[in-house]
Design a protein around this nucleic acid. Sequence first.
DNA 1: TCTGTTGTAACTATAATGTTTACAACGAGG
DNA 2: CCTCGTTGTAAACATTATAGTTACAACAGA
Lengths: 146, 146
Amino acid sequence: MKISSRFTIGVHILSLLSIEKDSHCTSEWIAGSVNINPVTIRRVLGQLKRAGLVKVRSGTGGAYLLKEPADINLLDIYRAVEVVEEGQLFHFHEEPNPECPVGANIQIVLQLILSRAQDAMEQILKNITLKDLVTELNQQINVRAN
Amino acid sequence: MKISSRFTIGVHILSLLSIEKDSHCTSEWIAGSVNINPVTIRRVLGQLKRAGLVKVRSGTGGAYLLKEPADINLLDIYRAVEVVEEGQLFHFHEEPNPECPVGANIQIVLQLILSRAQDAMEQILKNITLKDLVTELNQQINVRAN
DNA sequence: TCTGTTGTAACTATAATGTTTACAACGAGG
DNA sequence: CCTCGTTGTAAACATTATAGTTACAACAGA
């Protein structure tokens, strides 16, 4: 099972807000770039808002970043959209048989090991800021423009 | 979305086969330890078989390892049960708007970055063998037995 | 007040997962 | 050679997460 596209959608939204910071970024407008429906955008935007990453103007509409791109990393976004509960990337089968030595102990041992794997991934996300991403994105945009 | 419990089930099964190598390990018996129904066990066992990790006796029943525990790592199991297609841990929203500079380029840039995150996780899995796991498991079993 | 936008709810469709029941095929042992 | 337990697989079902669609009250600026 993949990690929900809410994460990449969230990253897309924030990249847009960073690059198009002078535009009037309504959910409808963002939906046009992401190419999904505006309600999903609003849902994700709501999560980004609750995480303190963006501000959404009610009434007049439009969203903008509350932090510098250099101060937002991909793990912040990952957490914000709650695609995976903290420490729960791997789904464990519930209640292995406590009568069986393996069943009784495998969860503890495996949880420890898999946490390390998960942490390794999250550290990579943590080390990449929105600014890094936007810089690479702008380079790519220029490459393709020429 | 979490990574399917097929993975932890697969690990559980192989740990059992490794520790209880002299038992007659039928799907029914394994199901008792994992505490899920035997059909799911057989499905996972089938995937492990296709990956060349185990052999299942038909007719008389019972499964056993085809490799030494030291020669099976967690990434092998992860791949075997196909919880995640290779390189596809993160779900991308399909077809962002190619008219938009961000939409047209974000996939390429983000794919590169997220591959690194995914690789980091998989490297951890790759570096842990079934033997390592079973060793830790046996220690844990002894700790709890005393 | 009018207008465009947000936030949210309800309903729907789709997909993946896992359970249960069922049964043909298989192979060992009597 | 026949019975018995087991495997492999299919079908039907329940559950859950995701995402699209429609709808509408609340909001704020012109």
